[in-house]
Design a protein around this nucleic acid. Structure first.
Length: 722
DNA sequence: GGGATGACTTAGGATCTTAAAG
DNA sequence: CTTTAAGATCCTAAGTCATCCC
């Protein structure tokens, strides 16, 4: 049964009736070989061109079999939109209805395309040298796609109330400024200053604008032009929805077709998806937080800015640029590197790369290695913790700082914090760059209060009781220093990582984050244990909050998984800004709840009314209006039977508790970004093992992108331990 | 040994798409 | 069917970390 550790079970199948409260779990044993055979058939099936139904029928058995297989296959199944009812129809020789039922389906009907048929690169089955220097033997691709040239609209601005004609360059910048109006950048002093500087630079030396202020220019004409364009598009849509949508569709198709050659690369005979094949278009740089360069002009990239990396024997792609006479800056053949092309960004001289996508071998293998490294850390974490705890008590200041920093990185999952140049970048910190001003102490309880801006200028605040030695060390490091001085002045990130390498080859600061995130997820999911003869698991959450999860309900299991996910996100400080409509949505949902409550009361009252056989008339009009403010009708008709009403009561009660949960989750998640940890920190195998154990379809937890990113983890079995 | 550079991962917000609700 | 909310994808900024070079 599901609660038993099914160590030796090779494949777990699951029943499809998820609505049943008493969902049974059948663990049929299959040979692994059989699984693999089916998988390879399936691969074959996918790589075949499916042009007619007969061909599809040929594979009906496979599809039908997939129906009963593990969530892995389940995910593949949904990946390729295979309709299982169709498959089962074939098996039973029932005529298949293939015509779309509704107009929406008709419109949305997609024929099998390249995506549908794309073979999976099963690198994890064949790679022998995991950390090979040689990344590829053959590499061919089409290079980068360039941004379209700017098309001037010829609209002037007002300078001190008078019309000022702009040249194309100035106009482009002014137009970009108009698109920033209405965003947070519009009112950021640095952004305004830098934009103004950039804009003015496009005028001759003696032009009066050189001495003027931004406020002396009026950009409304351009802004209006842009707004009107949008407005007209909206009106057109309203007037002639059909043809405007069709036109849009056609444009999209044309764009896709133009992009198609760039979307794939050929790597050792395997076609792989490329990501970031478009150069970043010019614009006003949107640095985050108080970035000193925000508002500066990010220049147009042309072919002579771009280096490309291909095999020596591969044809050199043509640089497709709107103007003639341009070629690549350089063509190299570096088969120890994974980038396909790069150029230098004009703002910070940073390199922008074109890589293969996350679903490729290059990325997938590295991702796998990352988690394996974190697992290696797990095997010796006790020793390592003992090691740095010893350093906390060292007499040597450098050792003390190393120990303390490592402690913080491990305990609080901080980033290492490399040094930054505040003239070039926003002033943000990590562990090693923490300053005295970012920490305060509470001596009575050994509690430190941290408050600083981390990566992306996301604020980190935490009040936490720490190890006594770490506490006194931190106090000592801060003693006699000014607020803007470094706490860890005797060490650098390089030194810290050197120290970590001594503890375990390959160890660096970021591994702790991966390890702690994955370990937290696993520990949290482990709490969910079924007891003999019950479907409800009781979870003690931090000793006090008690959660009860009905493991027969996929919804509740998902809720629990998200709860675990949230723990990790909070640990890693993955935040998001509260969505604009958050409050409004909350209010709406609460109003809905009130309406349901009223319905419930009315039902109950009416039952009472009927049972008492009262002769009085019953008021059939609810007091609350519906969400749009219109009057509502009673949830039942006059003369309804008590039996039916009682059913209704149960139903409404269920809906109320569902809605309450929804409101709570919606509010709990308003500032927490769950995605980042799912994509980057939590070993997917933990999630997959959990899903298999509790028979959660994997696509409920991993979206398409994630499933494509983690194919190497899909075969994980329920007994996987991180 | 320490700064600069290059390669690669991690990050949140904007925008587009899909699904659910009305 | 249309509207709205949620979810997926795109975009590109901003980290980490190894290596190079002096």
């Amino acid at each position: 049964m599901v609660h038993g550790e099914s160590e030796n079970v090779k494949t777990e199948t699951y029943t499809h009736d998820r609505s049943s409260k008493y969902r049974k779990v059948n663990l049929n044993k299959h040979d692994e070989e059989k699984d693999l055979k089916i998988l390879s058939d399936f691969d074959h099936f996918r790589s075949d061109k499916i042009t007619d139904l007969n061909l599809l029928k040929k594979y009906a058995n496979i599809i039908a079999y997939i129906n009963t297989l593990t969530p892995v296959l389940h995910s593949l199944k949904s990946e390729f939109n295979i309709d299982y009812t169709m498959a089962s129809c074939w098996q039973k020789n029932i005529p298949i209805k293939i015509e779309p039922v509704t107009a929406t389906e008709k419109r949305n009907k997609t024929e099998p395309n390249d995506e549908f048929l794309e073979p999976l690169n099963r690198w994890w089955e064949s790679v022998t040298d995991l950390e090979s220097e040689l990344k590829w033997n053959y590499l061919e691709h089409r290079g980068l796609q360039f941004a379209e040239l700017y098309e001037p609209h010829g609209i002037s601005i007002l300078f001190n109330g008078k019309e000022l004609k702009l040249n194309s360059e100035a106009e482009e910048i002014a137009t970009m400024w108009c698109t920033t109006l209405g965003t947070e950048y519009e009112n950021k002093p640095i952004f305004r200053k830098n934009f103004w500087k950039t804009f003015k630079s496009k005028f001759p030396t003696l032009h009066p604008i050189k001495k003027a202020k931004l406020e002396s220019c009026d950009f409304t004409a351009i802004k209006n032009y842009l707004d009107n364009k949008k407005l007209k598009a909206a009106q057109d849509l309203e007037n002639d929805r059909e043809s405007v949508l069709a036109e849009k569709e056609a444009l999209k198709r044309a764009k896709k077709e133009l992009e198609l050659p760039f979307t794939y690369a050929l790597v050792d005979n395997i076609r792989e998806k490329v990501s970031g094949f478009k150069v970043e278009p010019p614009g006003l740089f949107r640095g985050r937080g108080e970035h000193p360069k925000q508002g500066l002009w990010k220049q147009r990239i042309i072919p002579t800015d771009v280096k490309i990396n291909i095999a020596k024997t591969a044809p050199v792609p043509k640089a497709i640029y709107p103007l003639n006479g341009y070629c690549w800056n350089d063509v190299v053949h570096e088969n120890s590197l994974t980038w396909l092309a790069y150029y230098k960004d004009t703002i910070q001289d940073q390199i922008k790369y074109m890589y293969l996508s996350a679903q490729s071998k290059f990325k997938g293998l590295n991702d796998f290695l990352k988690y394996e490294k974190a697992r290696r850390l797990k095997t010796c974490i006790t020793n390592i913790r003992d090691g740095y705890r010893q350093k906390l008590r060292s007499d040597d200041l450098v050792d003390k700082q190393l120990g303390t920093a490592t402690y913080l990185i491990d305990f609080l999952a901080l980033r290492v914090g490399s040094e930054k140049d505040t003239d070039e970048e926003a002033d943000t910190v990590g562990c090693c760059s923490l300053r005295v001003e970012h920490i305060t102490f509470d001596k009575l309880t050994d509690t430190i209060n941290l408050d600083f801006l981390g990566k992306d200028s996301i604020r980190y605040t935490n009040s936490v009781k720490v190890d006594h030695y770490a506490f006194t060390n931190l106090m000592e490091f801060c003693k006699d220093k000014k607020p803007d001085e470094d706490i860890f002045d005797k060490i650098s990130t390089a030194k810290l990582n050197d120290y970590l390498k001594e503890l375990l080859p390959g160890l660096s600061a970021k591994v702790f984050r991966t390890y702690n995130a994955s370990a937290t997820l696993e520990a949290c999911l482990d709490l969910l244990k079924l007891e003999e003869g019950t479907l409800v698991a009781t979870v003690k959450d931090e000793g006090n909050e008690v959660l009860s999860v009905n493991c027969g309900s996929v919804d509740e299991l998902l809720h629990y998984y998200n709860h675990a996910n949230r723990r990790v996100a909070i640990l890693c400080n993955h935040q998001r800004t509260v969505p604009k409509l958050h409050q409004a949505t909350q209010k709406k949902m609460m109003l809905k709840e009130n309406i349901l409550e009223e319905d419930l009361k009315m039902c109950k009252d009416y039952i009472k009314h009927l049972n008492e056989g009262s002769k009085k008339s019953f008021c059939m009009t609810p007091k609350l209006n519906d969400l749009k403010g219109n009057p509502r009708k009673a949830p039942f008709k006059e003369g309804a039977k008590v039996e039916a009403l009682e059913k209704k009561v149960e139903n409404i009660k269920k809906n109320i508790s569902k809605l309450k949960l929804k409101i709570k989750i919606h509010d709990d998640n308003k500032t927490v970004a769950l995605g980042t940890s799912k994509i980057n920190y939590m070993d997917p195998r933990i999630t997959i093992a959990f899903c298999k154990k509790f028979e959660i379809p994997i696509e409920k937890v991993f979206n398409r992108t994630l499933r494509m990113k983690f194919p190497w983890a899909m075969h994980t079995r329920t007994n996987f331990r991180f």
